[in-house]
Design a protein around this nucleic acid. Structure first.
Lengths: 174, 174
DNA sequence: ATGGCGTTTGCAATGTTATAACGTTCTCAA
DNA sequence: TTGAGAACGTTATAACATTGCAAACGCCAT
């Protein structure tokens, strides 16, 4: 069961990150504050509901399913919450680049770097069910080039590599 | 509704294809014959059911959903066919590299080059719902390299680029 | 051919993920 | 303050996929 702790409300200074090699090591509260900032800049609303869902995603150790988020919300709000509520907020977060759907798992993760418009790929560990978001310029290059040679106009990329992460290989969980 | 025509039973000479730039221009019957050959070589059974599903995939213009395949089978066999029947056969075909699941569409396509163990990516046109399977050495390289630098052991790759294909761009279906 | 054994399929039920349709409430600007 | 668009609530249903168990099939050693 996904747990929720309300995040600090004040004095969080959102910072844009420029390190392409960072492995997403950011404080959740800071990233949520950044999301709020970006939404303000863009003139879109990070409503309470949307922020709650974003925080739940950040607080989860692992990619989270929509129905799991729904359960968590039910406890948060002490009322019934239905699928459209969750899916609409997820759509919003995804459209704003604040969350990502992992297509091969039907699960959702917060996007670590919404402030960059980059292509990312996801490494998914099937042993510990963790995901890591990675930015790669060369990947974008290869895809753009292949698309160009076919005169294909790309709009959305899904790049997911499932396997065993370093930790789990060491732990012998192969 | 997906149509089915039984494929020629005789005199099909399956051929392995070595053209990395081929865009999957192969006769369906020849590809099914090749699948049968590969299964024989591997000591696994391409049963009637499995072959029917593979043929349906080849005969479909577009990626096909499991329930659509189920409907088509019902008409073929004039009896009820249930989801597990279809999903089990799809699992088999996928495990043998004879079919591919398109994760972002929950749909299935035949794999054009089961005889090669390559990484492929898929270009998906959201206008005409077509898919094209492409092999790319550089892509595999970029992913392997990124994985290596994280000491991640990749097992399965999902690479799907959705957008608008050449035909649909020309046709102005943007 | 026959019996044994692993593989494949049939079938009913159920689980999981996602959206449609429609009405209400909220927000913000004129 | 009121009107228009955005966001949300609610009911229902669509779409996709799996579990569990039993029957049939295929293969092969006897």
């Amino acid at each position: 069961m996904l747990k929720y702790k309300p995040m600090a409300q004040v004095s969080i200074q959102p910072k844009r990150c420029n390190d392409p090699g960072c492995r997403g090591k950011h404080a959740a509260a800071e990233r949520v504050a950044l999301a709020a900032l970006l939404c303000r800049e863009r003139g879109v609303q990070l409503t309470k509901l949307r922020q709650q869902i974003l925080e739940l995603l950040w607080q989860s150790e692992q990619p989270t399913g929509a129905y799991e988020l729904m359960e968590a919300l039910r406890h948060l709000e002490s009322r019934n919450v239905t699928p459209p509520t969750v899916y609409r907020s997820l759509s919003f977060l995804i459209s704003q680049g604040l969350a990502i759907k992992i297509e091969s798992w039907n699960a959702y993760v917060p996007c670590v770097h919404p402030e960059r418009g980059h292509d990312h790929f996801l490494f998914l560990c099937s042993a510990c069910r963790s995901s890591v978001e990675v930015e790669d310029q060369r990947l974008s290059g290869v895809i753009s080039q292949a698309a160009g040679s076919m005169e294909f106009r790309p709009q959305r990329r899904v790049i997911e590599v499932e396997g065993i992460c370093k930790r789990c290989v060491s732990a012998g969980s192969i």
